[in-house]
């Protein structure tokens, strides 16, 4: 039995702030957009599958940007893809969060020096909340990044527009 159930059992009243309730609801159901760009997406899919099971965090991939809260940029962002990534981001309702997964979308990664086709960091086109390093990051690392994002949402203030880098 969880903390909440105990509280409800002993009188049925929970006292908290609206801010807390909203943040709790948001961080407990971060729905990412179901899209991947390169090999990191394989690792992301493994994280969502049964062994690591992102469902237990309330993280369920959504097929449409309109229903998503989080964008996991999983893979190499090419110049040709940049416009599409940007458009998908703009189609997401606010509040929206971006997790940059892997070296490629963090900084260009292996294409930092030799790659005429790769955007050196997805933060050049959209604001990023959490960077997860790795090439590709292990599922544990992605879960770690998502938990960091949860902590970030937990600390959000009412009426203050959330800011990313």
């Amino acid at each position: 039995m969880g903390l909440l159930d105990k509280q409800i059992d002993s009188g049925g009243v929970v006292i908290t702030t609206a801010e807390n309730v909203l943040n709790w609801a948001r961080l407990s159901s971060m729905w990412p957009m179901g899209f991947g760009l390169a090999c990191c997406a394989i690792e992301m899919m493994a994280t969502m599958a049964s062994n690591y099971d992102l469902d237990r965090f309330g993280i369920i991939p959504r097929p449409s940007p309109r229903q998503s809260d989080v964008m996991i940029v999983a893979g190499t962002v090419t110049f040709k893809m940049a416009e599409r990534v940007k458009r998908l981001y703009q189609q997401m309702p606010e509040p929206r969060y971006v997790l940059s997964m892997g070296s490629c979308s963090n900084s260009g990664g292996p294409y930092w020096q030799h790659g005429y086709h790769v955007v050196k960091s997805v933060s050049r086109i959209i604001p990023v909340d959490v960077y997860v390093p790795g090439c590709p990051p292990r599922p544990e690392a992605l879960i770690g990044g998502l938990m960091l994002l949860q902590e970030k949402i937990r600390k959000e203030k009412f009426g203050v527009k959330h800011e990313a880098v």
Partner: peptide, 15 residues
Amino acid sequence: PLIGIEGSIPLPAKE
């Protein structure tokens, strides 16, 4: 050049 040519492919502007 391996690194590409700066500005040869335009990036969408950041908000």
